[in-house]
Design a protein around this nucleic acid. Sequence first.
DNA 1: ACCGCAACCTGTACGC
DNA 2: TGCGTACAGGTTGCGG
Length: 316
Amino acid sequence: MPELPEVEVVRRGLERWVVGRTIASAEVLHPRAVRRNAGSLPDRLKGRTAASVERRGKYLWLPLLDSEDITAGLDGLDGLGREVGAGEVAAGEALIAHLGMSGQLLVVDPLTPTEKHLRVRLTFTDGGPELRFVDQRTFGHLLVAPLAVRLPRPVPEPIAHIAADPLEDVFDDEEFATRLRLRRTGMPRRTEIKRALLDQSLISGVGNIYADEALWRARLHWARPTETLTTTKIAELLAAVREVMAEALEQGGTSFDSLYVNVNGESGYFDRSLAVYGRRDRPCPRCGTPIRREPFMNRSSYSCPKCQPRPRNAHP
DNA sequence: ACCGCAACCTGTACGC
DNA sequence: TGCGTACAGGTTGCGG
């Protein structure tokens, strides 16, 4: 699914409906959905309170407060204050969620009939709406893990390898431009621009839809070698990524079907504004040329043959 | 160290 | 109607 705009829509829903509530129970209906916690998830959630809802790229997490933290009036982020190692302070734990290809987090009345693909159900001590994790393909999962304070932003340990996303203040445009062309070792990076956009350790939150849409806006073919991009072109591409994501967010995200919905089960409507994705043989909104579809990484890439000519130095 | 690909799942659409 | 194939918004782990 869900790419950054769709996940942000879910984050906002959770912020409104879940923050400040204390978990009464967690029921796991499919072990694969909690595979990284192997049986311990319910015990680690019971009695804890969601302090906030954070997002980086396509990951969501809810920092968890213990009841002692609340009675002590601490903010839950650095309440324990234990030294763990150089540059890190223990900050308790967080409930992490990744929606994979088909995951949904739904806030529903407890009497709502069980969804066919319900994987985890969280109930709250106030007896109010439940939080349900529904996931047809079970590529998504929930996980409770330590939250380490790392400057400039606290992030759960299991997602320490995920780069900042382009809508975060801490995203470093210059570092991104450098890393697009150079490996950490200083050797030139040999890859194509779309592969790089989808690499969540370089820039997070971009998936197949928004990669294609941003490349179309920046007039770049997906197979363009990153080492041939100018600093100016990279800046244009980043601007296009931010622009298309901001527009999608305004419209509640992209939904081709009921698989991609907010916490209340409602679809976004940015699909009507897509220029190329899923639009093979339909006219390019800029020049009228029929959009082409090409196989790419066991998926598809959509582009305009005229606005986005295949680079001559790309592999055929 | 890096890169590209198969694997992990379920459901739908389509051609024969 | 049934069957086989292709494809779907993502991440991981492994081989080269």
